[in-house]
């Protein structure tokens, strides 16, 4: 029987810096995201939000501390239940693959989901360069909504989108999160957006032991 208190995605006492003599970027960070919870991580530019997001998603290893999913470390192999969506969708797709192949790299979303996501059939036959940022971002969201995904780390995912597309993308994402009871860590610099989409807001400078200059 799993301990209820360890449920969720938890960053415990995380510290990080680039290089041995550099300044600490993150120091002693503790942050937990429960299933179904959407935590907004806000803070000024350069304060380490993205670095923390990458650590929590398992893309970067912290120098100290650990990231636990329901009490155990993130799996090194196989599908990771913590998935990430990025600020620049065009960097997260192989430019030599068609959209259909990109979409189905991990799992095959059904037609209904694609319709919900506002992905047009005809886009599947295109190259990534032939789609706009907002359209690509839909694919990247659909790509990580597989049944094994439990948590999503969203790093400024709508920063490069116009406000109408931003509202469209978030409408889709919130619906999916609700349906699959996903926990989300939402990195953004936009307070108004964080208030709209998150259930709880955390200011990184307030929980960061490292001095932000």
């Amino acid at each position: 029987m799993q301990d209820k208190s360890s449920e969720g995605l938890a960053a415990g006492n995380i510290s990080f810096r680039y290089g041995k003599s550099a300044d600490w970027i993150l120091r002693g960070i503790n942050l937990t995201v429960k299933p179904g919870e959407r935590v907004g991580l806000i803070g000024p530019s350069g304060c380490g939000k993205s670095t923390l997001a990458r650590i929590i998603a398992g893309y970067e290893r912290p120098l100290e501390g650990e990231v636990l999913l329901n009490g155990s470390p993130l799996p090194k192999k196989g599908y990771c239940p913590v998935q990430m969506i990025y600020q620049h969708p065009e960097q997260a797709v192989n430019p030599r693959w068609k959209m259909e192949k990109i979409l189905c790299e991990a799992w095959t979303p059904d037609a209904e989901l694609l319709k919900d996501m506002g992905i047009e059939r005809e886009w599947l036959k295109r190259w990534p360069a032939e789609l706009s940022g907002g359209e690509l971002q839909r694919f990247l969201i659909a790509r990580v909504l597989g049944p094994q995904t439990r948590f999503l780390v969203c790093d400024e995912i709508s920063t490069m989108l116009d406000v109408i597309t931003q509202a469209q993308v978030w409408e889709i994402l919130l619906k999916a999160a609700e349906r699959q009871e996903l926990g989300m860590l939402v990195v953004t610099h936009n307070m108004a957006l964080a208030k709209r989409v998150c259930t709880r807001i955390v200011s990184l400078p307030e929980i960061n032991g490292a001095e932000y200059r």
């Binding site: 116009d162 406000v163 109408i164 597309t165 931003q166 509202a167 469209q168 978030w170 409408e171 936009n190 108004a192 957006l193 208030k195 709209r196 989409v197």
Partner: peptide, 14 residues
């Protein structure tokens, strides 16, 4: 529609 979609306004997508 631009104004309506702002998060501080209706946050309603066109």
């Amino acid at each position: 529609a631009f104004l309506e979609a702002l998060p501080q306004n209706e946050f309603r997508p066109l």
